[in-house]
Deep mutational scan, measured.
Amino acid sequence: GSMEQGFLPKGWEVRHAPNGRPFFIDHNTKTTTWEDPRLKIPA
C-alpha cells in the first residue's frame, strides 16, 4: 500500500507482479529489481 511506498528511496516505486510478488522500479536509472532497495546498505 501507500505506507510502504513512503519508505522507499527517492525515485523508487513498488509494484506487484501478476503473481503478487512485489518488485521495485528505480525511475532514476529506469530499471527494475526484485531486491528491496531498503535492504541494501549504502556504501
Rank of each mutant, 00 (worst) to 15 (best):
G1Y: 09
G1E: 11
G1A: 12
S2H: 13
S2C: 10
S2M: 13
S2P: 12
S2A: 15
M3Q: 13
M3R: 12
M3L: 14
E4C: 15
E4Q: 13
E4A: 14
E4F: 12
E4D: 13
Q5T: 12
Q5R: 09
Q5W: 11
Q5P: 11
Q5C: 15
G6S: 12
G6I: 09
G6V: 12
G6A: 11
G6T: 11
G6H: 11
G6R: 09
F7I: 13
F7K: 15
L8P: 02
L8T: 02
L8W: 03
L8Q: 01
L8N: 02
L8Y: 04
P9S: 04
P9T: 03
P9Q: 05
P9M: 06
K10Y: 11
K10L: 13
K10S: 13
K10E: 14
K10G: 09
K10W: 10
K10A: 15
G11C: 15
G11R: 01
G11H: 04
G11Y: 03
G11N: 06
G11F: 02
G11T: 00
W12R: 00
W12F: 03
W12N: 03
W12D: 04
E13N: 00
E13D: 03
E13V: 04
E13W: 00
V14Y: 02
V14A: 06
V14N: 01
V14K: 08
V14G: 03
V14S: 04
V14H: 05
V14C: 14
V14W: 01
V14L: 10
R15L: 10
R15D: 06
R15P: 03
H16F: 15
H16T: 13
H16L: 15
H16V: 15
A17T: 14
A17M: 12
A17G: 09
A17W: 05
A17P: 05
P18G: 08
P18H: 08
P18T: 08
P18W: 09
P18N: 08
P18I: 08
P18F: 07
P18D: 08
P18M: 08
N19R: 00
N19I: 00
G20V: 01
G20K: 05
R21M: 10
R21L: 07
R21G: 04
R21E: 09
R21N: 07
R21W: 05
P22L: 09
P22D: 07
P22M: 07
P22I: 09
P22V: 11
F23V: 08
F23D: 04
F23I: 09
F23P: 01
F23C: 10
F24N: 00
F24V: 01
F24M: 00
F24E: 03
F24K: 00
I25Q: 03
I25W: 06
I25S: 04
D26M: 00
D26I: 01
D26W: 00
D26G: 00
D26P: 00
D26T: 00
H27K: 06
H27Q: 06
H27M: 08
H27A: 03
N28D: 05
N28Y: 06
N28T: 08
T29P: 00
T29V: 03
T29W: 02
T29S: 08
T29C: 03
T29Y: 04
K30Y: 07
K30M: 12
K30G: 15
K30F: 07
K30R: 09
T31A: 06
T31L: 08
T31V: 08
T32H: 07
T32L: 15
T32F: 13
T32N: 05
T33L: 03
T33M: 05
T33V: 05
T33E: 02
T33A: 02
T33N: 02
W34A: 03
W34G: 03
W34T: 06
E35A: 08
E35M: 09
E35S: 07
E35H: 10
D36S: 02
D36Y: 03
P37D: 01
P37K: 01
P37E: 03
P37M: 02
P37H: 03
P37I: 03
R38M: 06
R38L: 03
R38V: 05
R38I: 03
R38G: 06
L39A: 13
K40V: 14
K40A: 15
K40N: 14
K40D: 11
K40P: 14
K40Y: 13
K40W: 14
I41D: 14
I41W: 14
I41A: 13
I41L: 15
I41K: 11
I41H: 14
I41F: 12
P42Y: 10
P42G: 11
P42F: 10
P42T: 11
A43P: 13
A43D: 14
A43N: 13
A43F: 12
